[in-house]
Amino acid sequence: MNKTVNQKAWFLVLPVLVLVAFSAVIPLMTVVNYSVQDTFGQNVFFWNGIMWFEEMLNSERMWNALGRQVVFSAIILAIEVPLGVFVALNMPKKGFWASFCLVVMSLPLLIPWNVVGTIWQIFGRVDIGLLGYTLDAIGIDYNYTQGFFAAWTTVIVMDVWHWTSLVALLAYAGLQSIPDAYYQAAKIDQASRWAVFRYIELPKMMGVLMIAILLRFMDSFMIYTEPFVVTGGGPGNATTFLSIDLVKMALGQFDLGPAAAFSLMYFLVILAISWVFYTVMVNLDKREGR
């Protein structure tokens, strides 16, 4: 039977296209326009060519912020992904406790970013916070407003607390989709626990895990609210991540041009990494489809 060619279904994509145009494409074009101009407000702009890009590429401040950002993302990925998989492996497979675990796990995901920030801001305070007070009482010098190490630890532990559940839930969904026959075959072969994980569970989880890593990477790479609420980027510039620094530059100092130039580079980095992840994911699917 010959299928008739009908491309009208493309029109169904139109609303999304309009929405994305208004929420992303047009603002992005505006940022591109800002990046080649200078302004003192009043929507009056002066041509500046590629000077802002040159300035930003040679700006130690921005490279440092980018460096901190990369380190932050690397650390939280290195903690959250293995931890999430570990949690998922140890969650009950069915029954009351499975549902109970799922609900408990998803609780942190439901809390808005600024509330998470506030919770940890108070939790870590030495005078009234449970964590800060306890650590102080047992003699650990912990003060996230002054100590570099304390500030980083707080921000990282907060992110792990907030988002490990996401990785765990996705990994759990991946695990649930493995038919029992695989485990039975492994048992017949007397496969070790490690072999079952390495050759059955991990390959089957790969697809969702890639999505989890991509989501966590993008979210952590763009993190703003939580560290801003907890440390405000301090002490000094210790936890001033990219978006915090960009907001400082764009809104605090009203340097729209340099901020736009840098945010475009920031965007390119995210685009490149997301493309790599996407390509890997699509190719994983293809290999599984064969």
């Binding site: 047009i26 505006t30 591109v32 326009n33 800002y34 080649v36 101009q37 302004t39 929507n43 702009f45």
Partner: peptide, 15 residues
């Protein structure tokens, strides 16, 4: 469109 602060080079780029 004025709020988007267009310039000829960027317009050409997008075109």
């Amino acid at each position: 469109m004025a709020w988007m602060a267009w310039t000829w080079p960027t317009a050409a780029f997008f075109a």
